[in-house]
Simulated assay, not measured.
Amino acid sequence: MTGMFRHWPTRLRSVVVLAAALVMAGCAYIRDPEPPMTIEQVEELTPMAQVPVARAWVNPPGSQLVFQRGLLGGSEQRVLLVNQSAMPGDNQMVIRTRTGFGDGGRLRYEEFIRRVGGLPAPFQNASSGAFQHDADDLGPYAWAEERFGVGTICVLAVRRVQSAGRHLPAGVDAMDILLRNCVNGTAAKALEPILAPSVSGGPLGAPAGGSSRMLSALAGPSQ
């Protein structure tokens, strides 16, 4: 074959050599396949859609806007609350359902905080040792607090709600809730959105006369 190649015209030999070089160069630039995305990366790319406040899964005082998205193995709502303090940042509740994990036990704090994007200000450096613990009709909850100036307090609170405390749809193991709330007042006032009356009560916009209907944790429209 080599001898035959020597008898080819010079121009033809040049073309063959150039073609071979291009093929080899192309092979050198073949990229490795992209690794599959993690669950967190998929969730980061999942957009939020605004839903009516009346479709919130909880009933906290001061609700202004509600956003929702579907996730792998659950759904998420973010309920924005009024902020009448001088503290920057959003007062909000982040609520996530867990579906099909068979995990209705205790809240996995580190995983939950990672999945919701980390701790909000001013609690970025809060450790688990900073939390206080209590319980109400829906079970245990924990919170940390920071005081600013005269009369301003911020709380960071977390809890897990299970079907024993309120109705959850079939397949949903639990509903995890994070609250960041800064108020001019007391810690008790700041904690109101995550306590049993707000979490287990009927939806905003319920009919008058106390005939509020209990919404399931997936009552909002799927996105």
Rank of each mutant, 00 (worst) to 15 (best):
M1F: 10
T2H: 11
R6Y: 01
P9Y: 01
P9H: 14
L12W: 05
R13K: 15
V15L: 12
V17T: 12
A19K: 12
A20G: 15
A20T: 13
L22K: 07
V23H: 06
V23T: 06
M24R: 05
G26K: 05
C27K: 12
I30D: 00
I30F: 06
I30S: 05
R31I: 05
D32S: 14
E34F: 08
P35W: 08
P36I: 07
E40K: 05
Q41H: 07
V42I: 05
E44W: 04
L45A: 13
M48N: 15
A49M: 05
V51I: 15
V53D: 07
R55M: 08
P61F: 03
G62P: 07
Q64A: 14
V66K: 14
V66C: 07
R69F: 03
R69H: 03
L72M: 08
Q77T: 14
V79A: 07
N83C: 02
Q84L: 14
S85K: 12
A86E: 02
G89N: 11
D90F: 10
Q92F: 05
I95L: 13
R96N: 06
R98M: 01
F101G: 11
F101V: 00
G102T: 03
D103V: 00
G104A: 09
G105K: 01
R106W: 00
L107A: 00
E111G: 02
F112A: 12
G117Y: 07
L119A: 07
P120V: 09
F123S: 03
A126I: 11
S127D: 12
S128E: 10
D134K: 15
A135N: 12
D136V: 13
A142N: 05
E145P: 02
F148C: 06
G149M: 08
G151N: 10
G151T: 00
I153N: 00
I153V: 10
V155Y: 01
S163M: 06
S163A: 15
G171Y: 08
A174K: 08
A174T: 02
N181L: 05
C182L: 07
C182Y: 01
V183T: 04
G185R: 14
T186Y: 06
A190N: 02
L191A: 11
E192V: 06
A196D: 00
S198R: 01
S198V: 02
S200G: 10
S200F: 04
G202C: 12
G202I: 09
G205L: 06
A206R: 14
S211Y: 06
M214P: 08
M214N: 07
L215N: 10
A217Y: 00
S222P: 11
S222W: 04
S222V: 13
Q223T: 12
